[in-house]
Computed example of a mutant assay.
Amino acid sequence: MNEVEFRELRYFVAVAEELNFSRAADRLGIAQPPLSRAVRQLERRLDVRLFDRDTRTVTLTPAGLALLDEARHVLTTMAGLTRRIRRAAHPGTPLRVTAKAGMAAGMLRAITGHYTALPGAPAVDILVSGYREQAAMVRDGRADLALLTPPYEARGLELEALAEEPRMAALPTGHPLTRHPTLHPADLEGLPMPRGPGEDGPGPVVHDSAQLLEVVGLGQAVALVPRYLADAHPRPDIVYRPLRDADPYTISVAWAEGNRSQAVALFVRAALELYADVPD
């Protein structure tokens, strides 16, 4: 049998993230020899070398890099499946829905109110989550549904668009681009922009929209923001300019791919009944 085992993927990810067999074994709570044997067995099953090893270093091969992304996705999907099955075994378990603070959270409250008025709707727990956490929470089962705002990784999710907002450029006061009444996305190319934790790029790391505006006001970055955020936060140290030909800022409801729960379907129906103004 050459089928890959779930345990082997979990062990592989630990080694790939630690790049050290001893630390990976400690993290997994096992001894190092069985961990090394499991990795070698995985390499034999796949007929590829996943790591380059010498006496000092462990590095991922191209095949290992490719497997790491897929293995993380498999582990997350399995975690989400396990959580959803456990909740399904208890019919009274509330539906868990999440959004970040701001416009999305306000929409979520409105949808929840509409949903709970529908016949047969289970109870709902609303989770206000952090910056860019929502997609991961649905994939790994911590939430059944989420309202997502870009950017996010859509893999493993099903989505319905609910609302759109034009994008604005947020610039530090005095920036040369503030001389123009409108801008094009190409005007911002090459400029530092805020990035989320774990993302690559030259701009500062931010954890929420308040921090994003602070780094813009300090002149450390420029940013793309939805119009509602610009309207809600006029500041003397930031100038907002409309963007021509920019993709709109879309708020979507998302749930795990393949999740056919009646409660999830009812919640999506409630969301679409309230917010059905997004063109196909």
Score class of each variant (00 low, 15 high):
Ala89Ser: 10
Pro91Phe: 12
Gly92Met: 05
Thr93Lys: 07
Thr93Asn: 03
Thr93Val: 09
Pro94Ala: 08
Pro94Asp: 10
Leu95Ala: 05
Val97Ala: 04
Ala99Glu: 09
Met103Trp: 10
Met103Tyr: 11
Met103Pro: 00
Ala105Ile: 00
Ala105Arg: 10
Ala105Gln: 13
Met107Gln: 14
Met107Pro: 06
Met107Cys: 09
Leu108Phe: 07
Ala110Leu: 11
Ala110Ile: 04
Ile111Met: 09
Ile111Arg: 12
Thr112Asn: 01
Gly113Phe: 01
Gly113Gln: 00
Gly113Lys: 01
His114Ile: 00
Tyr115Cys: 05
Tyr115Ile: 03
Thr116Ser: 11
Thr116Gly: 10
Thr116His: 06
Thr116Leu: 15
Ala117Asn: 02
Leu118His: 15
Leu118Met: 14
Leu118Gly: 05
Pro119His: 14
Pro119Ala: 14
Gly120Ser: 13
Ala121Phe: 13
Ala121Asp: 14
Pro122Tyr: 12
Pro122Glu: 06
Ala123Phe: 05
Val124Arg: 08
Val128Lys: 11
Val128Tyr: 11
Arg132Gly: 01
Arg132Pro: 00
Glu133Asp: 14
Ala135Asp: 03
Ala135Tyr: 01
Ala136Gly: 08
Ala136Phe: 03
Ala136Asp: 09
Met137Asp: 02
Val138Thr: 08
Val138Arg: 00
Arg139Val: 02
Arg139Gln: 04
Arg139Leu: 03
Arg139Ile: 01
Asp140Gln: 04
Asp140Glu: 05
Arg142Met: 12
Arg142Asn: 06
Arg142Thr: 01
Ala143Cys: 06
Ala143Glu: 04
Ala146Trp: 05
Leu147Ile: 13
Leu148Trp: 01
Pro150His: 13
Pro151Val: 13
Tyr152Ala: 05
Tyr152Asp: 05
Arg155Val: 15
Arg155Asp: 12
Gly156Ala: 12
Gly156Glu: 03
Glu158Val: 12
Glu158Gln: 11
Glu160Phe: 08
Ala161Thr: 13
Ala161Gln: 14
Leu162Lys: 04
Ala163Lys: 11
Glu164Ile: 15
Glu164Gly: 10
Glu165Thr: 02
Arg167His: 03
Met168Leu: 11
Ala169Asn: 02
Ala170Gly: 04
Leu171Arg: 01
Pro172Gln: 07
Thr173Ala: 15
Thr173Phe: 15
Thr173Pro: 02
Gly174Lys: 08
Gly174Trp: 03
His175Glu: 03
His175Cys: 01
His175Leu: 06
His175Ile: 07
Pro176Arg: 06
Leu177Phe: 12
Thr178Met: 11
Thr178Gln: 01
Arg179Leu: 15
Arg179Pro: 07
Arg179Trp: 07
Arg179Gly: 13
His180Gly: 04
His180Ala: 11
Thr182Arg: 14
Leu183Met: 10
His184Cys: 03
His184Ser: 09
Pro185Thr: 06
Pro185Phe: 02
